[in-house]
C-alpha cells in the first residue's frame, strides 16, 4: 500500500461522502445521474466478488463493504426515498447506459487476464468504471449550471483516479513484476474523461465563478 493508493482510496471515499451529504442535507438528488450511480453499484458488485473468498486485509474488506453499501444506498435513495426521488431529473438523465454495460461486457469477454468467470467480471467492472461517469457528465452539460456539492463530487471522483495512476507509476518502478495493463489503460481512459471537467472546474474556481459547462 503506497501513499498514492491510500490518497486515491480516501478521495474516492470523500467523493461518496460528499454525495451522501448532498442527498441527506438537501433531501434532493437534483443534478445527480441515477444511471451513473447504478453503473457504480454494478461496478462494485461485479468487482468485489472475492469479498467472501479472498481475505487481503481488514482495510480492503472494510472499504469494499463501504463502497458496495454506499452505492446501493444511493441508488435505493434515488429510486425509493419518497422525498429524494421527487427531485430526480429523469428527463435530463437520458444517457442510454445499457449500451455502456453491453459494450464493456463484450470487451471484457475479449480482453481479460484469465478466462474465468470472476476474471471476466473483474475486467468488466474495470471497463465499466471507466465509462460510468459519462451519464453524469452528459447530465451536467445538459443542466448547464452545476451545484457546488455535485461539482465537488465529480472533482473528487476524478482526483481518485488521478491518484491511482500515480500509484501505478510508483508500483511500476518499485515492484519487479507489476504489470496491470487492463487496470492501467482503463484508468487512463477514465481519468481522461474528467480532463475537460477539470479544466472548466479550474476555470470557474480561478474566476471564482459558478461552474458552467458548455452545452
Amino acid at each position: 500500500m503506497n501513499i498514492f493508493r491510500l490518497a486515491g482510496d480516501m478521495t474516492h471515499l470523500i467523493s461518496i461522502l460528499v454525495l451522501l451529504l448532498k442527498i441527506y442535507a438537501t433531501k434532493s438528488c437534483s443534478g445527480i445521474s441515477l444511471k451513473t450511480q447504478e453503473l457504480y453499484a454494478l461496478v462494485f458488485l461485479t468487482r468485489y466478488l472475492d469479498l467472501l473468498t479472498d481475505f487481503i486485509s481488514i482495510y480492503n474488506t472494510v472499504m469494499k463493504l463501504v463502497f458496495i453499501g454506499s452505492s446501493l444506498a444511493i441508488v435505493w435513495c434515488m429510486r425509493r426515498h419518497r422525498v429524494v426521488r421527487r427531485s430526480y431529473d429523469k428527463e435530463l438523465d437520458t444517457f442510454r447506459h445499457y449500451f455502456l454495460i453491453a459494450a464493456t461486457f463484450a470487451l471484457a469477454v475479449l480482453v481479460y487476464e484469465k478466462f474465468t468467470f470472476r476474471e471476466i467480471l473483474w475486467a468488466f467492472s474495470i471497463y465499466l468504471e471507466a465509462v460510468a461517469i459519462l451519464p453524469q457528465l452528459v447530465m451536467l452539460q445538459r443542466s448547464g449550471n452545476v451545484d457546488n456539492l455535485t461539482g465537488k463530487y465529480v472533482f473528487f471522483l476524478g482526483a481518485y483516479r488521478a491518484f491511482y495512476i500515480l500509484n501505478w507509476i510508483y508500483r511500476y518502478f518499485t515492484e519487479a513484476r507489476f504489470t496491470r495493463w487492463i487496470a492501467c489503460v482503463s484508468g487512463l481512459v477514465q481519468t481522461a474523461l474528467y480532463a475537460d471537467f477539470f479544466y472548466y472546474y479550474f476555470i470557474s474556481w480561478k474566476n471564482n465563478a459558478k461552474l458552467k459547462l458548455p452545452a
Binding site: Y59, N60, F67
Partner: peptide
Amino acid sequence: FSEGKYHDEL
C-alpha cells in the same frame, strides 16, 4: 497490508 495478492487494489 499483505499486498501481493492479485487484485489487491479497490
